[in-house]
Amino acid sequence: MPAAHTAAHTAAHTATHTVAAPPPAPLVEAEGEPGREPGRTIVDIRHLTLTYQAADHPVYALSDVSLSIAQGDFISLIGPSGCGKTTLMRVIADLEQPSSGDVLVNGMTPEQARLKRAYGYVFQAPALYPWRTVERNVTLPLEIMGTPRAERQTRAREQLERVGLTGFERKFPWQLSGGMQQRVSIARALAFNPDLLLMDEPFGALDEITRDHLNLQLTQLWRRTRKTCVFVTHSIAEAVFLSTRIVVMSPRPGRILDVIDCARDLPPERTLDIRESPEFQRIAHRVREGLMEGHSYDD
């Protein structure tokens, strides 16, 4: 349980705080088929602390973070810049080693999970390879995983269409705008159909309309496939719209301040107009309060 939950919340909200309960024995389940039954714990983080050893002084990026993410969850991480959202995702992805604490992904260590290609990662920057065309950037993971050429191409076309980039297959990344590049990187993460999607501010560089469109696409994709998603954003509306749960983080060192359940009050099938509903507004308000509270902690 995140320790911060005891703080300053009104009685009306405390009822939703039960979601971060310890997962039901993930290690036992990992023995069997990697099934898709909802409720199975996909990511289990316990007392995670991470300190970067910078040249002059240590940077305390994450402090005692505990979070469990179930199959089919859509988790949004929200918090001020530099609070450790990217760091948390990188730990899950085995791109960063925790200083202490335990992390399990699919019941395995993050390294084992990574080697089994358990997740697709959309980085905060597009990270496209400039010598590859847009299409060959999208097929890159498929090439590594040994997918036959014809299938690689159809899958790439499919995903590029999903992000609205049909007709740009033969272009090079540097011939695209920043937002288009980011959409290519989303298509690339979707191309090999991973069960777990880690997305670090994927829509940060996009205009409002494209963003709405992709939000809708993403929520539909999620509802159809029930992929587990971990999503970093700075937009409260986006977080509420997409998520089953929102994790509010404090400024450095990153701690979890609040975990807000959206699945209870909002329908799983979401259209853009639910943003006008009072339930939506209430959750957004609570996220904002959590963020503001976090800011007052440090000053």
Binding site: F123, A127, Y129, L140, I144
Partner: peptide
């Protein structure tokens, strides 16, 4: 760049593959 290397790592690509690609 680090982020390009991270991408290769996230695909579980080994030394030779990330060298080549």
């Amino acid at each position: 760049e680090r982020i390009q290397l991270d991408l290769m790592r996230s695909y579980g690509a080994g030394y030779w593959r990330s060298l080549l690609l």
